[in-house]
């Protein structure tokens, strides 16, 4: 069998980038499955695309600008109402910076 397109270390690195705390079992399973999928998508290399523009989007539109006017927004109450932790005004998260006393 050909070498897998992706190894365990790469899968771990991608999981880190994707902010996913995967189990060892998931990492091993994804290594095999992503390997098979990447093997399959290799077929794109049968096509010479050196003179082809990438197509990110099918519509003939570019920027959509609107007037810079203040409009009604959702408001704080509705914005934080689905938050898992809130004090009613802010989203609460664990401390991000260490206390330095420098401020």
């Amino acid at each position: 069998m050909a070498q897998n397109k992706i190894d365990i270390e790469q899968v771990k690195q991608v999981a880190k980038l994707a902010r996913l705390d995967l189990t060892e079992a998931e990492i091993s399973q994804f290594t095999t499955q992503l390997g098979a999928i990447l093997e399959y998508v290799e077929k794109l290399n049968q096509l010479d695309t050196s003179k082809v523009e990438p197509l990110a989007h099918c519509l003939p539109i570019n920027n959509c600008l609107r007037a810079d006017e203040v409009k009604e927004s959702l408001g704080t109450d509705k914005t934080v109402t689905n938050a898992p932790q809130t004090d009613g005004r802010f989203f609460l998260v664990p401390r991000i910076l260490e206390e330095s006393g420098g401020f």
Binding site: V41, L44, L47, T49, V52, E53, P54, L55
Partner: peptide, 10 residues
Amino acid sequence: KALKVRNLIR
């Protein structure tokens, strides 16, 4: 590469 092939498909 996929975006370029997308253009070919279109």
